[in-house]
Each structure stands twice: as C-alpha cells, then as structure tokens.
C-alpha cells in the first residue's frame, strides 16, 4: 500500500534529480549565463500539480542542497525557492486554469522574483556579479517552460491520481 504510494512519487523524484544534474552540468562559457533555473521550474510544476505533497518544505530542503552544491550562502536558494513555491501553492488553482501563454507569463514573473531574491541576498552579503547572470536564467527559463510543462504533464496524471 505504502509501497504503491512511494512508487507513484517516483516520477517527481526522478525529474527533480534530473533537474539537479542539469543545474550542475558544465556548459560552454558563453552559454553559462543562459542556464534555466531547472530546479525552480520543476518545483513550480509539481507544486502546482500536487501542492499537498510538494510544497514549501521540499523546496526549502532542495534549496539547501543547491546551496551546498554551489557554495552559495547557506539558505540563499532555500529562501528564494521557498518564496516562489509559496506563491505557486497559494495560487495553484488559478494557475491550473491559465492557458499556456498566461501561465508562461506567470512563470516569468516567478523566475524574476526568484532571481531578484538571490540578487538582494548577494547584495547584502557583498557578492558582485554581472547583471547577465541574473537575467540570463530568467529569459532561458521562460523559454524552457512550455516545453518542460508539456513533457511533465504526461507524468502529472500518474502522480496525481494517487493524490
């Protein structure tokens, strides 16, 4: 029984793991600023689809892992992810009925907020980085979102039916 339940969560875990690996994957120097925030995108998708299981707690934990992996301030990504996932869960019913274009615009806003939070924290901590490092991921993430959400929707019903 609980085994079956765990099995149903498998797609979520696998997609999160893949997103984590994509985040760490080396890219050519020129493409590096345009790496989408894969983890943020995948987390937003699952928080929208299954908000009861994947909400702020998971986002926070993954953020901490990301902070350790990237050597950023411990809690920086955790806080930023936590905030955007809170907003996603809060408005998940609304976001579910959005057409794709409107949803993409919402994701753009969420990603902008996410990068802004990281930017602010960097500013307080005294880390300087060129502006492209903040804008690049937002643009790339917004472009990646429609493809990602189409790919993940196939998995979505398998996870959701278990509820």
């Amino acid at each position: 029984m609980s085994n079956e339940r765990a099995l149903r969560q498998l797609p979520v875990l696998i997609t999160l793991l893949i997103a984590f690996m994509l985040t760490m994957m080396p890219l050519p120097t020129a493409a590096e600023p345009f790496r989408p925030d894969w983890l943020a995108l995948v987390l937003v998708f699952w928080a929208m689809a299954v908000p009861r299981s994947y909400s702020v707690g998971i986002a926070w934990l993954i953020g901490i892992l990301l902070d350790v992996a990237q050597g950023t301030l411990l809690g920086q990504h955790a806080l930023a992810l936590c905030v955007i996932i809170y907003i996603t869960v809060k408005f998940h019913l609304l976001m579910r009925v959005f057409p794709l274009s409107q949803l993409t615009a919402t994701v753009f806003a969420l990603l902008t907020l996410y990068q802004f939070l990281l930017f602010w924290i960097n500013g307080v901590a005294g880390v300087t980085a060129p502006a492209i490092d903040y804008w690049g991921p937002v643009v790339a993430g917004t472009i990646a979102w429609p493809f990602l959400s189409v790919m993940l929707s196939g998995l979505r019903y398998r996870v959701q039916t278990g509820g």
Binding site: T23, M24, M25, P26, L27, E32, P33, R35, A69, Q70, G71, T72, L118, N122, V127, A129, D133, P137
Partner: peptide, 10 residues
C-alpha cells in the same frame, strides 16, 4: 566537470 556557483568563477 561540475558547474558551481553561477555568481562566481568557481
């Protein structure tokens, strides 16, 4: 071959 902190040359 792992990319680290996006805001630094790490």
């Amino acid at each position: 071959a792992v990319d680290a902190n996006p805001y630094r040359h790490n």
